[in-house]
């Protein structure tokens, strides 16, 4: 039982981090209808800046720098590439983002090389003991921070002018423009927000018990993709649910791997995608994907 609770807490914590990443996917998709495959390299860029800066300026300043850097890279990708790519189809734009992702990831992995970079976080490998269960402090912080960020984001999405502009654009870009919404700014801010969230996610993907930032981190980030899809690519609450489902599934599968050897090793890594496929078969637009509600 204690093992199960430990796994569950860890799973929820990892899931919250995936939800941060998935939220970035969803924001960009809602604002621009582009599926953004550049997301993993935004995350890698944020993590890389934190890793390189923390010996120089301390952890918290480095974290801020990483968040700003990832937001900037996101904004630049939007401004320099996607805004200027006048292609008719969103599918083509998605492939453009794959190209950009390969460029960015190649450059970053070249810089990282074979190193495993520490991020200099203050939590180290300390653990919390709550009765019978033991949880890494980093997991608790990740859960708290991701939860707070997601809550703040959802509140902003619902109540601020930025959120209204974002949702109006997501629903009908042309009409939003007719209302005076500057679509370029909406799209730019979506990419920047997604980048910032990805940098925070990068931090929590690279701290204990993970050894640090290495060239494989981007692949870990891709697990948030099934989270976004199975929640419904245009649903913020779906990103949250999707992240948690993926996180818990993966952690439980890995935790009980010894009992699941008949499925083969590494089932934890494949589990998110299996869950995604099953959910999509049952609900093609994802758990919370839009079903049109209209009366004529």
């Amino acid at each position: 039982m204690a093992v199960f609770l430990e796994l569950l807490v860890n799973g929820v914590s990892v899931g919250a981090v995936y939800a941060l990443i998935a939220l970035g996917f969803v924001v960009i998709f809602k604002a621009t209808e582009v599926v953004n495959f550049t997301h993993a390299s935004l995350l890698l860029a944020g993590g890389y800046v934190i890793a390189r800066m923390h010996p120089l300026i301390g952890f918290w300043a480095a974290l801020a720098a990483g968040i700003v850097a990832a937001a900037l890279v996101g904004a630049l990708v939007e401004f320099l590439i996607l805004r200027r790519a006048h292609v008719g189809s969103r599918g083509v734009l998605a492939i453009v983002t794959i190209g950009v992702d390969i460029l960015l990831t190649t450059e970053l992995t070249r810089r990282i090389g074979t190193e495993v970079l520490a991020l200099g976080d203050p939590w180290g490998d300390r653990v919390l003991r709550l009765g019978p269960i033991t949880v890494a402090e980093t997991r608790v912080v990740a859960l708290a921070v991701a939860g707070a960020l997601i809550a703040a984001f959802l509140l902003a999405f619902t109540f601020t002018g930025w959120g209204v502009a974002m949702r109006a654009t997501a629903e009908d870009a042309e009409t939003a423009a007719l209302m005076g919404v500057r679509l370029g700014r909406v799209s730019l801010s979506a990419w920047a927000v997604a980048g910032a969230l990805a940098a925070v996610a990068a931090l929590f993907l690279c701290v204990f018990p993970t050894p640090g930032l290495d060239r494989g981190t981007a692949a870990v980030a891709m697990k948030a993709f099934p989270a976004a899809i199975l929640g419904g690519l245009d649903s913020t609450s779906g990103a949250l649910a999707g992240g948690l489902i993926v996180g818990v599934t993966e952690t439980l599968m890995n935790g009980y791997q010894s009992e699941l050897v008949f499925l083969g090793r590494g089932i934890g890594d494949a589990a998110p995608f299996l869950v995604m496929i099953v959910i999509l078969l049952l609900r093609p637009s994802g758990l919370f994907g839009t079903k049109e509600q209209a009366r004529v």
């Binding site: 002018g161 109006a168 629903e171 005076g180 919404v181 509600q293």
Partner: peptide
């Protein structure tokens, strides 16, 4: 904006 409330629609007009 069908998915938004009436009040939010009006707000969208005043952005």
């Amino acid at each position: 904006f069908a998915r938004m409330t009436v009040a939010e629609n009006l707000r969208a007009g005043a952005l």
